[in-house]
Nucleic acid binder design. Sequence first.
DNA 1: GGCTCCATGTAAGTTGTTACATGATTCA
DNA 2: TGAATCATGTAACAACTTACATGGAGCC
Lengths: 207, 207
Amino acid sequence: MALSHAILVSLVDRPHSGYDLAKRFDQTVGFFWPVSHQQIYQELHKLARVGWLRSQMVEQSERPNRIVYELTDDGRHALDAWLAEPTDPPSFKEEMLVKLFALAPGNQPALLAELERRRAMHVARLARYESIMAEHYPEPARLQARRRGRYLGLRMGILNERTTIAWCEEAIACLHAAPADAADAAEVASTTALASPRARTPDARHD
Amino acid sequence: MALSHAILVSLVDRPHSGYDLAKRFDQTVGFFWPVSHQQIYQELHKLARVGWLRSQMVEQSERPNRIVYELTDDGRHALDAWLAEPTDPPSFKEEMLVKLFALAPGNQPALLAELERRRAMHVARLARYESIMAEHYPEPARLQARRRGRYLGLRMGILNERTTIAWCEEAIACLHAAPADAADAAEVASTTALASPRARTPDARHD
DNA sequence: GGCTCCATGTAAGTTGTTACATGATTCA
DNA sequence: TGAATCATGTAACAACTTACATGGAGCC
């Protein structure tokens, strides 16, 4: 549905080859939307067949030839039409939540380990995003219109990572808390599971 | 990959029919993971074929017969093995970000309207989640071990909605901000000429 | 000699979506 | 009369993944 449009968007400014697009995706959209090179090549063929792109072979010596694609007028119109359509909210499939639905005494240590692993992963990602932010958008208040889309993409990445980290920490604390089942009901009242001290990330403010 | 496991998880406690599962999914996992009934029926057939489930026809008068599925020992083992495996982080495909990459003076009003629409949608969702939370988990500190997975799922839903709303508001403000290029074209031209950032940051598409 | 980069693809498979189909019962 | 609920499915398609394939250039 949207991969084709993501390609159209990438070709608005200037023509690109499939290889270029794959690399570009890795550095931009790919952070939150992984796309394989096979998908891109197939989609390019399809879009050319439909008439939204035209292709041109660029012969190279000493290197494989490139096939460069550019938008047609039809493609431009299709893109504009799509931009005006309502956007689907992202469907968010988090495997970890499915696993937590199966929470039981037997698998609790495994799930805890997994939560720790995920937390570390998101901390690393956040650091990567924040360094990109510091380097490329030191002053977000004054930003050329054309760069705002990219800025907002990165910004969402950062907000999401912070939220996920905060959630991992909550979840870890929650699993560590003494069980409230029959026997230990009284003991739990004193430990207050979810109110345990944990690092508050600056933007995880709503909790 | 994970739909089959989500079904196994749902059958841990007791047997269910495909219809039951579809309804259950709508109320739990379905909030963050929409699954169609066709998918469930197909997956049930597959899991029965593989031997992780066994099925039993329940004849009913005045109603269509039901086919009830329950876990086999093989299924139970497969589930335990899956729980111990590392979890993929969710791939997060947000169409809105793709659209924002195409931000230009011509489509700016359409994108703003879309951001407003999305914001309202997430506000409504958040309200729904919070009312469920208030009704079912009024005291999260003392929670039976078995209910913690569901609680954490809902909790992540709430955190995500809050984050998305905050982002929508940022994005709306960002697009409303006075453009830094039309009037300041000369300034921009001189900065890019002086700085030439591409030479130093070859892998940076964020500029 | 093995590695990565450049640049393109095919083929087979799995997963997910959309549309269509049945047929009785209950409620407004 | 029309719609919703119960309960199951088939068929066709679109989207995505995984594996395989080529072949020169330059690097350590």
